[in-house]
Structures are given as C-alpha cells and as structure tokens.
C-alpha cells in the first residue's frame, strides 16, 4: 500500500476544509498587499487618491521614469548588487577555508577557534555599530565601498563557518590522506577536493548571505553618507519618505525594491528552503 493511498483514505473532510480555509486565508493576506502595490505603481497619484483600490484605467510608466530619473535607483541597484556579490563571494570562500582548517587539520586549537566564531552568532550589527562607526571614521573607511563590504563579510562568517564546518567534517578523511600520500599540498586539496565536493553547501551559504546582504539596512545607512554609495533599501527609504505626497511614485520605488528579489526567490527557492530549514536561521 502506498503512502499517499494511506493518507487519502484517512482524510476527514473537516480537516480538508480547515486546511484549505487556513492556507487560502494566509496566501491571500500574503499576496494582496503585494499585488495591490504592483498595480498601483502603474497609476498616477491623482487616480490613486480617487480610486485607491481599482485597477489602473490607463496604465502608465511615468512613476518608474521619475523614480529612475530622480531617485537614483539605477545607481542604488548596482551598489546593492556590488556589495552583495563581493561580500557573499568572500564569505563563501573564507568560510570554506576556515571550515577546512578547523575540521581536517586535527589541531587542538581548532575547538577554541570554532567556539570563538560561534560566539559571533549572538552579536548583531546594532551592538557594534557605535564603535564600528568611530573606527571607520578614524581609519578612513567611512563612506567607502570597502567599509561596507568588510562588515558584511564579518557578519556572514559565524553562520557560514558553522554550516561549512559541519559539511566538510562529513567529507571522508581517507580522500584527503590519499591526496597527501600522493604528494598533494593543502592548497591543491582545498581547491580540487574540498571546493568541488562542497557545491551543495556553497549554494546554501551563498543564497542566505546574498539575501541578508541585499536587504541589509543599518550598516549602509550609518557607514556611508554619499548618495552614490547607498544601497537599494536605503535609497528607497529616503526616496519614499522625502516624496511622501506622491503615492504612485512611492509604489514604483517599492516595486523596484521587490522585483529583483522575487526573481531571486523563484530561482533560489529550494536552496533557501533548505538553508533555513537546516537550521540556518535569520537573525
């Protein structure tokens, strides 16, 4: 008897109705604000004020044109992309290196280092933001791209090293020993064996970090001052606040902030579910 058969046989209609009601309610509540935001972004402000709920009568791209022209959205988008990609790639590489060192070298100090990194899970951006601001100002990293990327990498590391270590631990020692006997150096072992075998965990670390870095707000907001340094969330926040009379324009800015992540979501959905499900949990 197959599992599904077993399940369907025992279905009580009460539970089915309840399930549908509950899940549909949740889906509607989740989607309605986003759908409303999407179609409202094609309406001019006057139309939104008169008929806030109705679909656009004459869909217009005027809001988007203005948002890109006055809102610095292109620049913000590329900044976000730059910050997120560079810091995610660095976090992935550094965490795999560290994970390899901490699990396969058999030094007693590894435990201490691991514990030290785990401590970082308890520390969040706002507990270091004051000293970080003072430090960056005094060494000249304030309002530079490097000054944003370094904290992004650092805050990604504790979780990434945890995930990388537990995965690399599972790679058979025999593989590495055989390579050592064949005369391979540790650099070679890392690039050819560890990195190749770690593809699934690379995806998990990359996806989680990219998501966090893309949506990060406080660090960019406090450690940069120039318009041309700002990421998408920071730009949208000041743009939608400054012009808070024009609803149409605001909606277009919000859509610009959401659409790239929806594309990302549909591509990376499985890796995301796996990443969060495996115990990697958002701050």
């Amino acid at each position: 008897m197959s599992k599904t058969n077993l399940r369907t046989k025992r279905i009580s209609s009460g539970w089915t109705v309840f399930s549908y009601a509950f899940l549909i309610l949740f889906t509607v509540v989740t989607l309605v604000p986003m759908v409303w935001m999407l179609y409202s972004s094609f309406k001019l402000n006057g139309e939104i004020l008169l008929y806030p709920m109705s679909l656009p009568k004459e869909p217009t791209l005027a809001n988007y044109r203005k948002a890109f022209e006055f809102g610095n959205m292109f620049n913000a988008f590329f900044n976000s992309l730059f910050y997120s990609l560079i810091s995610t790639a660095s976090t992935v590489l550094l965490s795999l290196c560290a994970g390899f060192a901490l699990t396969k070298f058999g030094y007693r100090s590894s435990k201490v280092y691991s514990g030290f990194f785990t401590l970082g899970l308890l520390i969040t951006v706002n507990s270091v933001i004051t000293p970080l601001f003072i430090m960056e100002t005094s060494v000249g990293l304030y309002n530079t791209r490097l000054g944003v990327i370094l904290p992004y990498i650092a805050f990604g590391l504790p979780m990434a090293i945890l995930i990388a270590s537990s995965f690399i631990k599972g790679i058979p020692d025999a593989l590495i020993e055989a390579a050592v006997i064949d005369g391979a150096g540790y650099q070679y072992i890392f690039w050819k064996i560890i990195l190749t075998l770690s593809t699934p965990v690379i995806a998990t670390i990359a996806v989680l970090n990219f998501l966090n870095n893309w949506n990060e707000f406080l660090l960019v907001f406090t450690l940069t001052s120039g318009e041309n340094m700002r990421s998408l969330p920071v730009t949208i926040n000041s743009f939608a606040g400054r012009l808070n009379q024009d609803y149409g324009l605001q909606f277009s800015a919000l859509v610009i902030g959401t659409v790239p992540m929806f594309i990302f979501y549909f591509i990376a959905h499985n890796a995301l579910v796996q990443g969060f499900g495996e115990g990697a949990i958002k701050e």
Partner: peptide, 27 residues
C-alpha cells in the same frame, strides 16, 4: 511557495508598503 515569499523583501520595503496599507488610501 506563496506564503514564504515575503522572506525575500527587505524590511524597509515591507514597512513602507504596510504604511500605505494603513494609510487613508490603503487596503
């Protein structure tokens, strides 16, 4: 898939969107 979607939106966008939802022209 649908219910998990908000996880990708930045808190800033979520906040501004819901401000619109509660505004006089909101849902």
């Amino acid at each position: 898939m649908m219910i998990f979607m908000p996880i990708t939106i930045s808190s800033v966008v979520v906040a501004l969107l819901w401000n619109r939802v509660f505004s006089p022209v909101g849902i």
